[in-house]
Write a protein that binds this DNA or RNA. Structure first.
Length: 426
RNA sequence: GUGGCUGUAGCUCACCAGGUAGAGCACCGGAUUGUGGCUCCGGAGGUAGCGGGUUCGAGACCCGUCAGCCACCCCA
């Protein structure tokens, strides 16, 4: 018999983890709504061309990481490796950029890479994109929003903001020429990857970790010297906003991001808790991407959060979310079970917010109480023979020190009301 | 895609010069009649990732393959 496994890099998120995901998603929704961002839901498949053109033909993502295949009509399609391209496509297609537009989306992304911790072939991102504002107040808002999100989750102390400006595409073109001219004189000292990039994507050489390459870079021309005044003052302004917000940052002159569409501001939130996969969130400005897609020239900026990495970080920080039921229902026999069934149907309707777990499969009181305990429920609600006969119900506290008590079943609603009030006040 | 490490019960792991598997936790049941958490007793559960080879005999050795982990690369 064949036993099946999920295919490489595809990960099941099991019930023990879903509460953490749900709390993370709830926090995201709350924070995003509070800033006036609206959800957009996008397809997982787009035409291959869309990604190649926006992310960049010579990036690693496009060169070797895309899940690309021909559909039944022989059209080349690709499972989205990131969300910005599809979001921009939708914005252009539906002409959503007519007014300042704040959007977010959440969902799976696909990259054919070798899996390791914090890296999967299917993973999930929260993406946030803002269209129509070119000034750095937009960049500041995005970063402030991130920090608010970190705070809600309790991970803000574990994340560090790295930020840089990479200028306009004209700035970068001039700088690229200068960089290539310089590096070409030291080709033999560059590592193999960097030599290749000299032809394809020279800016990426900047964040090479190879020591010899780094040495050469020490005397290389700096991008800062090629920025126009406008870019510089905008960056300074952004930094002043961050100071006003009390957000600590590190300006990293060699932070260049891997996707071609970025310009001006780029940033990453990184952590030391995740080993080699330290980037939890990355983003920046992409003012020319809409034009590339045939839209009206529209400035834009955004970022994406790696949700698996965020959950990993939360676990590393020992942040736990364990929702337990409020009530666990125990019954003595068939008649009591039948009684509880109809009784609780009404209770559920009246208290939809209560989590009521009914014991199924019968068994002794002992085994039912064991189950009740393991369920983590706060209270055991018991319909035994005598209770049913007397029109009563027994309530046994499973967690705290209160006394077990037996009350008239008609008083159950009053009791539940109290439980809810207690829960709200704590 | 490159290099390294690993793969034994649900989980964490052990054993053995190569002679046909064990612990802890978890799970199920019991310790007098309707009550959990502690303790004690008992039970169930593994064709040792998969395939091939060496051997009288392999989970242990070799090869392949699949998967996981770590680093590189890159990114979320």
């Amino acid at each position: 018999m064949t036993t099946y496994r999920a295919i490489r890099g595809m990960v099941d998120i099991l019930p023990e983890d879903t509460p953490l995901w749900q709390s993370m998603e709830a926090a995201a929704l709350e924070v995003l709504s509070s800033y006036g961002y609206e959800e957009i839901r996008l397809p997982i498949i787009e035409s291959t061309d869309l990604f190649a053109r926006s992310i960049g033909e010579v990036t690693d993502i496009v060169e070797k990481e895309m899940y690309t295949f021909a559909d039944r009509n022989d059209v080349s399609v690709t499972l989205r490796p990131e969300g910005t391209a599809g979001c921009v496509r939708a914005v252009v297609q539906h002409n959503l950029a007519v007014t300042p537009q704040r959007l977010w989306y959440i969902g799976p992304m696909f990259r054919y890479e070798r899996p390791q911790k914090g890296r999967q072939r299917q993973f999930h991102q929260l993406g946030v994109e803002a269209f129509g504002v070119s000034s750095p107040d937009q960049d500041a808002e995005l970063i402030a929003l991130c920090r608010q999100f970190w705070r809600r989750l309790g991970v803000d102390d574990a994340l560090r903001l790295e930020i840089n400006t990479i200028g306009s595409s004209e700035d970068r073109a001039r700088y690229r020429d200068a960089l290539v001219a310089y590096l070409s004189q030291h080709v033999d000292q560059l590592d193999e990857d960097s030599q290749r990039r000299l032809e394809t994507n020279p800016l990426r050489i900047l964040d090479s970790k190879n020591p010899s390459t780094q040495q050469v870079l020490d005397n290389a021309p700096g991008l800062q010297d090629y920025l126009d005044n406008n870019t510089r003052t905008e960056f300074e302004q952004l930094l002043s906003y961050l100071k006003a917000l009390g957000i600590e940052y590190v300006v990293s002159p060699r932070l260049v991001r891997g996707l071609d569409y970025y310009n001006k501001t780029v940033f990453e939130w990184t952590t030391e808790y995740l080993g080699a996969q330290s980037t939890v969130c990355g983003g920046g400005r992409y003012d020319t991407l809409l034009e590339t897609f045939g839209g009206k020239a529209t400035p834009a900026a955004g970022f994406a959060v790696g949700l698996e990495r965020l959950t990993l970080l939360m676990k590393a920080l020992d942040i736990k979310v364990t929702p337990a039921a409020d009530l666990y229902v125990i019954t003595a026999n068939e008649a009591a079970f039948r009684y509880s069934l109809t009784r609780l149907d009404g209770v559920r309707r009246r208290f939809p917010e209560l989590d009521i777990v009914q014991h199924l499969g019968g068994g002794s009181f002992k085994s039912q109480f064991k189950r009740a305990d393991k369920s983590g429920a706060a209270w055991a609600l018991v319909y035994g023979e005598s209770e049913v006969a007397a029109g009563q119900v027994t309530l046994k506290p499973l967690r705290a020190g209160a006394e077990q008590k037996t009350i008239a079943d008609t008083e159950l609603e009053v009791f539940l009301e109290e439980i809810l009030n207690d829960a709200k006040s704590t």
